[in-house]
């Protein structure tokens, strides 16, 4: 399959100044759709928007416990950029992780990972 940077064994520290970890090329991500990445043993959902911003949140859906967030539909609610869980359709704000529609459950947030694109390479940092 295509080339990727296997970082699944890279060590990552904790705290606010943890190192940036390269994950993939921006070109590896399809616009308006998520992709899962394995970062230092943790699963992250990366979302590239149509204007080439990249967002990163936990891959684990806090409501179902399944690691599926990257397979949800990207969209908007008012001004918020959203990602909807494919499991039971809870809606999250991609920028803040806040749960905007809990489908009758107690709202639970998604953890947001810092992310940047450097020279066409997507890098994330442990939150």
């Amino acid at each position: 399959m295509r080339a990727g940077t296997d970082v699944s064994t890279a060590r990552a520290g904790t705290g606010p100044n943890t190192p940036w970890i390269p994950v993939c090329r921006l070109a590896d991500l399809a616009p308006e759709r998520g992709a899962a990445a394995l970062v230092a043993g943790e699963q992250v959902a990366l979302v590239r928007t149509v204007d080439d911003d990249v967002h990163a949140v936990d891959q684990r859906d806090p409501f179902s416990g399944a690691h599926v967030m990257s397979r949800g539909i990207v969209g908007s609610r008012g001004a918020a950029l959203t990602l909807t869980s494919p499991m039971h359709k809870q809606v999250f704000d991609l920028r803040t992780g806040e749960c905007l529609e809990a489908m009758g459950r107690e709202p639970q947030a998604l953890r947001v990972w810092p992310v940047r694109v450097t020279c066409g390479v997507v890098e994330v940092r442990r939150p």
Binding site: M1, G4, S8, A35, A36, L38, V39, G41, L46, R60
Partner: peptide
Amino acid sequence: LRRFASFVNAPTTPDPS
């Protein structure tokens, strides 16, 4: 077929959970 990678940086690694 590219859409069926488990992870963008580890396309054939199973979901460890």
